[in-house]
Amino acid sequence: MNRKTAVWLLIPAFLGVLVFTFFPLIQIAIPTFQSKSGFFSLYAQFLKSSFNWAVLGRSFLIAIITVIVVLILGIPISIWVGRQKTVVRQVLNLLILFPMLTNAVVRNFAWIIILGHDGIVNKILLALHLIRSPLNILYTNASIIIGSVYLFLPIMINSLIGSVAELNVEVEEAAAVLGSSPWRTLFKVIIPQLTTGILTGCILVFAGTMTAYTTPEILGGNRHLVMATMIYQQAMTLGNWQNASVISIILIVISALSMWLMRKLSQHLDRRPTNA
């Protein structure tokens, strides 16, 4: 295939991305600059509000904690799965990805049953006499984090399994021969080789958590707004589409910058030779 033919074949895809991705973004961005007070007055007004900063901070906190928890759970699981026999690994991969085939709304409503006052968690804790009254887990930041971890853990594991398959076992054996403990080998030998997969998973989980709507809406309620649910509130409840557009653009910029920074960090940490 020559260069000219390849360019012609790429044109339909380029037009599709332009029409269905960039054009809607432009349509969202234009109203945010149409204010009598000034070009960036709506953004300045948003950033002056302490309430908006609280929502933004909550979104960041939930996303960062979710990334940390998913990473802590995902690394050992992915290492164990990646070192199984091919048939076993394929079955385990299928089981890990299977929950993603279920609608997120259904999964989140299941967590309402689990985390509610009469849910499984409170019943077990009461039966073990660890608590005297049911805990208020539902409609808190903790419930959003739990739902987000459950939602994005398969993505992190899937991102890491590919890197686990490329691990150099001989380096681990050499470390063991030299007297390295299993924990030291994990942090000094194994994890550095998983850097690319870890950062890729962190990008996907952070961006997904920051922009998620269903989980915070169902498990967080109206008292624990995040950026995505705030957009819905401004647009559908208050009918203020201009403010909703401002929040949307800020959320897009934050997610894009976070992904760009993590990608740069991944390129900096990936010291593999580029030339074969």
Score class of each variant (00 low, 15 high):
Gln27Lys: 10
Tyr150Asn: 10
Leu265Ile: 04
Ser133Thr: 12
Ala6Lys: 13
Ile28Cys: 08
Ser258Asp: 02
Phe109Met: 05
Ile231Tyr: 03
Arg272Trp: 06
Gly119Glu: 02
Val164Trp: 03
Gly220Cys: 01
Pro154Asn: 02
Leu225Lys: 11
Asp270Lys: 07
Trp111Val: 11
Ile30Arg: 12
Gln84Leu: 08
Ser37Cys: 10
Thr211Trp: 09
Pro182Asp: 09
Met259His: 08
Leu128Lys: 04
Gly239Thr: 06
Val17Asn: 09
Ala228Tyr: 00
Pro76His: 00
Thr196Lys: 14
His224Gln: 13
Pro24His: 10
Val177Pro: 05
Phe152Met: 07
Leu135Gly: 02
Gly82Tyr: 01
Ala175Gln: 03
Ser143Ala: 14
Asn240Pro: 12
Leu115Ile: 07
Gln234Pro: 08
Ile75Tyr: 06
Met259Ile: 02
Thr211Pro: 06
Ser163Pro: 00
Arg271Tyr: 07
Leu73Gln: 00
Thr215Ser: 03
Phe39Asn: 08
Phe23Lys: 08
Lys188Phe: 06
Leu15Ala: 15
Lys123Leu: 14
Lys188Val: 05
Ile124Ser: 09
Leu126His: 05
Leu42Met: 12
Tyr139Asp: 00
Ser41His: 12
Thr229Arg: 06
Met262Cys: 03
His117Asn: 10
Ile72Leu: 10
Leu95Gln: 06
Leu95Met: 10
Asn93Thr: 03
Leu167Ala: 09
Ile250Met: 06
Trp111Gly: 05
Leu204Val: 02
Asn93Leu: 13
Gly16Ile: 12
Lys48Arg: 14
Tyr213Met: 13
Met156Asp: 03
His129Pro: 06
Leu42Trp: 07
Thr274Ser: 11
Ile190Tyr: 04
Asn141Cys: 06
Arg58Asp: 12
Val17His: 11
Met259Asn: 10
His268Met: 12
Asn168Pro: 02
Leu56Trp: 15
Ser266Arg: 08
Asn141Ile: 12
Leu269Trp: 03
Pro216Val: 12
Pro76Trp: 05
Ile11Met: 14
Ile62Thr: 01
Ala174Val: 13
Ile191Asp: 02
Arg263Ser: 13
Lys85Arg: 14
Gly201Pro: 03
Gly119Gln: 01
Gly201Asp: 07
Phe33Gln: 11
Ser258Trp: 03
Gly57Glu: 07
Ala235Asp: 01
Gly57Asn: 14
Phe33Gly: 14
Glu166Phe: 09
Leu265Phe: 04
Glu170Gly: 15
Gln45Lys: 15
Ile124Met: 11
Ala110Trp: 10
Ile252Cys: 15
Ser180Asn: 04
Thr86Ile: 11
Leu135Phe: 05
Ile64Asp: 10
Pro182Tyr: 11
Gly74Arg: 00
Ile96Thr: 07
Asn168Cys: 02
Ser180Phe: 11
Leu95His: 03
Val189Gln: 06
Asn141Met: 11
Thr229Trp: 03
Met1Asn: 11
Leu135Ser: 01
Ile26Val: 14
Ser49Tyr: 05
Asn222Cys: 07
Ser37Thr: 15
Val246Tyr: 13
Leu15Trp: 12
Tyr43Ser: 04
Ala207Glu: 04
Glu217Tyr: 08
Ala175Trp: 05
Ala207Val: 15
Ile114Ser: 09
